[in-house]
Design a protein around this nucleic acid. Sequence first.
DNA 1: ATTGAAAAAACGAACGTTCGTTTTATATAT
DNA 2: ATATATAAAACGAACGTTCGTTTTTTCAAT
Lengths: 197, 197
Amino acid sequence: MPRTKDDKLEARRKREILEAAATCFVRDGFHAASMRAICAEAGLSAGAVYNYFPSKDAIIEGMAEWEREDVAELAVFMRGEKNAMKALVEAAWAMVAETTVDEAQLYVELIAEAGRNPSMQARFMSVDDELRGVLKETVERGQADGRITKRQDADTLTTLIMAIVEGIAGRIGYSDGTNAKELANIAADAVSQLLQP
Amino acid sequence: MPRTKDDKLEARRKREILEAAATCFVRDGFHAASMRAICAEAGLSAGAVYNYFPSKDAIIEGMAEWEREDVAELAVFMRGEKNAMKALVEAAWAMVAETTVDEAQLYVELIAEAGRNPSMQARFMSVDDELRGVLKETVERGQADGRITKRQDADTLTTLIMAIVEGIAGRIGYSDGTNAKELANIAADAVSQLLQP
DNA sequence: ATTGAAAAAACGAACGTTCGTTTTATATAT
DNA sequence: ATATATAAAACGAACGTTCGTTTTTTCAAT
């Protein structure tokens, strides 16, 4: 009788392939990384990856979904913290501090790809909007209970927070990687100061 | 008699090739853009382009030097403006407002490449340090005459300014491009507020 | 317990294409 | 006549992908 399909194995393999691909993409970039290199990194033969992903582009798109999980995690934390100001400052700190050199590199690669691939752009914007929604919701909460300034509207403040975090976290990609904590402090201080009533 | 070498023509051709390459790089990225496409965009054949640049990498590196000219221009403006606070706020505004979608896209591409190509990283860091130097010099001038806060040291404030400008300008690359001025105002306001004594 | 048909998974050679680059031929200006 | 700039063709290498084959795993029937 036939062998049954193993969903557990398939999910594990997919994750393994994505992780191998991430390693290659960080090292070589999306387009310079070859499928052979990804297969080798995943410990598979040349064509095996095509049993799990229909194309190289599909692997790249699969990668973009990782960000979404991080945003969902952040949302839980933000909603759990009563003090909106504290939540935002700590979130800004964590987003910078928890960024590794590899993640920053991969993120830059994603943004570059999003700029020219409409399908990727849609995916990226959707995650970006999700993050913006979580932050804005918290900013408005803080403005309502007086913990956060009303000098600027919630949209502007949210844009600022995201820009600062992205701007500072982005530097991790081409710094020596030892000063992530220090950069996190700078980001947190700036956010705190800009949100002060 | 031999045909004499025309330096003017050579310089013009090089610029034309770089501009054609920029168009292709924005559209496809550094590695997905082919030499054939660049040649076609420049209206030249393969052999012609190789008379001006020895390799594709040389074209990419030639591109990185464009940023340096912008920094040099900025330095002149910053040193000409007596009021350090005003100089920094206006510089932040201009750096965001003058960023086009294409430039933002190319910049992201450059950063991605710098993250993995040591030669490009050196070039990029050198330009980045130059910009940082110009800004820091102005921050210190402002701190000396009391126009700029001394809550944080000049290095921290400079990092912040750069992060805000890059973070906000970076968004132009994947926004619809209509709101550059609006984003410039946000950046300028934030810088102004953070530098206030 | 052992067997064997059958599905799943992995292999790895080979495909056509495109890559960056080099070589060869031609036109032009001196 | 000769040096040069360009065009056009050609190069080997590497690309993403396909596909026929082999290996592994499964489970009903023995």
